[in-house]
Write a protein that binds this DNA or RNA. Structure first.
Length: 658
RNA sequence: CGGGGUGUAGCGCAGCUUGGUUAGCGCGCCUGCUUUGGGAGCAGGAGGCCGGGAGUUCGAAUCUCCCCACCCCGACCA
């Protein structure tokens, strides 16, 4: 999947090698001149006092003769403070030639050194730099310090940074193969953030959340995913809410087979063309080659069409409203967990109607009453509902309508679609009926779906640097009761509290794993996005209260134990509301009304742009595409759905998308 | 398919340029003690066909060749 399963380790140690030593150890880099500017080395200031000065520093100086290297981390207790790059530390000479020579001269020492240690290359992609940083252990082992990439957001987190403390940044700025960034610097930074900050690397943040909130893993086959229990619990709640709405709209659930004869796909020209590149085809089964290859469904219009053709005879059989919950397979070239996976779970609705009007109305009903309503009320995600341009239309549809959501990075995600299929599939699969006049008519069909992609949407629409933020409506755990200390009274009271809340209908988890520190557990639940956390410790017990922490708002309040249930209810309601409010505000702030393609591209750097569709057109679409910007959907000025993309005065929503 | 990159412990990575003790480090995991109000500390421990195959060599994680896998960047998604 995309970046693969590589999550970062939970915490980054700041000094992977030797223990940090040296109160005045300057972490500074004197890189080969040509690289200095590119790598923007930051010279170390005095090291913080919280690191005792190590003996080795002195020892290293005693060996001055043998020392080589001005590489980063070759500290000098005596000469702390900033020196311009190019100066040697420890009185070492700088300059590549001397460096090499002196390494050669020292070879025996290197060889006998128990474990010659080398500094990381400043730039792993430039091999010539490598030798430059080699520093024998004897002289500088204690100063060994891996250079790191340090992002601005990370710096901000570090109080010492402001105090003049400096970090060593490095890594390859020129290619993607640079080593993963790590942490280095003062003790305050020993704790890397739980997640990669969003601002630094959003895709990485996403991966981190998936892994650390235990939502999903990558499957063994590229593009497949394992949905872990916590993630699946969220999905189940989504399913339940969507399913209820679908049923309210009159559709019934059924199930159609995973395998579809290849010939079915061929019956609708555009449909095959659209899907053939991503089909998984079974050619062998039962130990021999199949007469006719079978495809694993990428969607079920064709099989369902076949059966609708059988079942529909009369106008009395219409409308036929079907839905199925299933998995589908579309072989993805660039998979991303939940967002674009080779196999995913979804709901696909398929309906047949007597008239075009009826079909159109139903497709819209699903779009608004099921999808938009669900996303807004349950997922707390505001969506822009609109019509897709012809180029973004579903293969075989006459009209595709969409719910577009904005993620916190400003990109758009199509959260659900509803299609009018016209009579394309009805003709191909002979879905015909006799009307009340006794004449043969071709039916009109629709299809519509939402998938596990919404999981990705949920994560990216609400998540923050502390992790997931789950709306209470889909939260597998609404409240976690956390026993702060290993104390029988406390744990008992927590248990009772959990029971009480369960009795009040809340989904509660008791966290009495007192072998883990309180902070660790608090962090874990924040990561998982549990909306409300109740902390109870001896001090609270003494005062007959609990501390209620709200994940969405990020605050903590003491609440009397007697009124906990009420306070929790209130907090949950507030969470659902403010999540939607936050997402709406953030989205609206990032939609810019513009009047040219250039401006649109610019606006797409931070969010979406709206502009007259007349200015875009098909030609404009391809222009935008060069900047990876697409038309997400079209709407009328008043926000209503257009009946055609040829209507005058339509507004195009454009942006980058997943 | 073209170009670039990476395969070493569950995860993240050093080590390879210049072959040579027992292949290291961080996180995680296990045990014990001390801890527990925001990611615990210390001590001990388990865990490796160094992607695969062939070759060079007294000796290969390291050098050579071949293969495999994965990742990244470039061509119409729920």
């Amino acid at each position: 999947m995309g970046e693969g399963s590589r999550g970062r380790g939970a915490a980054r140690a700041d000094h992977p090698g030797e223990p940090l030593v040296g109160g005045n150890l300057p972490v500074h880099g004197d890189v080969a001149g040509s690289h200095t500017s590119a790598l923007e080395w930051v010279r170390g200031q005095a090291r913080p006092q919280h690191h005792p000065v190590g003996q080795r520093v002195t020892a290293a100086h005693a060996e001055g003769e043998r020392r080589v290297g001005d590489g980063p981390g070759c500290g000098d207790a005596g000469q702390a403070g900033g020196r311009p790059p190019g100066d040697g530390c420890c009185g070492h000479r700088s300059g590549r030639q001397q460096e090499v020579a002196s390494i050669d001269a020292r070879r025996p020492a290197v060889a006998t050194s128990p474990s010659p240690r080398r500094l990381w290359p400043a730039d792993p992609c430039v091999s010539s730099v490598r030798s430059w940083h080699r520093i024998p252990r004897r002289s500088c082992a204690r100063h060994w310090w891996p250079p790191m990439v340090v992002g601005t957001s990370e710096r901000r987190l570090c109080a010492q940074w402001r105090a003049g403390e400096r970090l060593v940044p490095t890594g390859c700025g020129n290619c993607r193969s640079a080593r993963r960034s790590r942490w280095v610097g003062c003790a305050a930074m020993a704790k890397a953030p739980v997640l990669t900050p969003q601002a630094e690397d959003f895709p990485r943040w996403y991966q981190d959340v998936l892994n650390k909130a235990e939502l999903a893993d990558n499957g063994p086959v590229r593009g497949t995913m394992v949905i872990r229990p916590y993630g699946y619990a969220v999905w189940e709640r989504m399913q339940a809410a969507v399913d209820a709405r679908i049923k309210a709209a009159g559709a019934e659930n059924a199930y159609f087979p995973l395998f579809i004869p290849e010939s079915y796909l061929r019956r609708e020209a555009e449909h095959v063309e659209g899907f053939s590149p991503e089909l998984a085809v079974v050619t062998h089964a039962g130990g021999k080659e199949l007469e006719e290859p079978v495809v694993v469904r990428p969607t079920s219009e064709t099989v369902i069409g076949e059966f609708m053709g059988k079942w529909v005879q009369s106008y009395r059989d219409l409308p036929l409203l079907l839905n199925q919950w299933a998995n589908v397979v579309r072989w993805e070239l660039r998979p991303r967990t939940f967002l674009r996976s080779t196999e995913f779970l979804w709901q696909e609705g398929h309906t047949a109607h007597a008239t075009e009007t009826d079909a159109a109305a139903y497709a819209r009903r699903i779009l608004f009453d099921v999808y938009e309503n669900f996303m807004r009320e349950v997922l707390a995600i505001p969506v822009v509902v609109g019509r897709k341009t012809p180029s973004e239309r579903f293969a075989g549809a006459t009209n595709t309508m969409t719910c577009e959501a904005m993620m916190v990075d400003g990109k758009a995600l199509q959260m659900g679609t509803s299609h009018e299929l016209g009579q394309n599939f009805a003709r191909a699969f002979d879905i015909t009926y006799l009307d009340d006049q006794g004449s043969q008519q071709v039916a009109w069909t629709t299809s519509w779906g939402v998938s596990t992609r919404m999981m990705g949407g949920l994560i990216m629409a609400h998540g923050d640097d502390r992790g997931l933020r789950v709306p209470p409506a889909v939260a597998p755990v609404e409240v976690v009761v956390l026993a702060v200390r290993d104390d029988a009274d406390v744990v008992d009271r927590c248990r009772a509290l959990a029971e009480e809340l369960r009795g009040a209908g809340r989904r509660v988890r008791l966290d009495d794993r007192t072998e883990l520190s309180m902070g660790r557990r608090a962090t874990e639940w924040e990561l998982k996005g549990v909306p409300v956390r109740l902390e109870l410790g001896p001090r609270d017990l003494a005062e007959d209260r609990a501390v209620l922490a709200r994940r969405i708002e990020g605050d903590k309040q003491p609440v009397p134990l007697a009124g906990v249930a009420g306070a929790v209810d209130e907090a949950l309601t507030a969470a659902q509301t403010s999540l939607l409010a936050q997402a709406t505000t953030l989205r609206d702030q990032r939609i810019a009304a513009v009047s040219s393609l250039d401006e649109a591209v610019e606006a797409a750097g931070v969010g979406w742009a709206t502009l007259p569709w007349d200015l875009v057109g098909e030609a404009g679409e391809s222009t935008l595409a060069q900047s990876a910007v697409t038309v997400r959907c079209l709407r009328r000025e008043d926000g209503s759905l257009p009946d055609s993309e040829d209507e005058a005065g339509l507004v195009a929503y454009v942006g980058r998308s997943y």
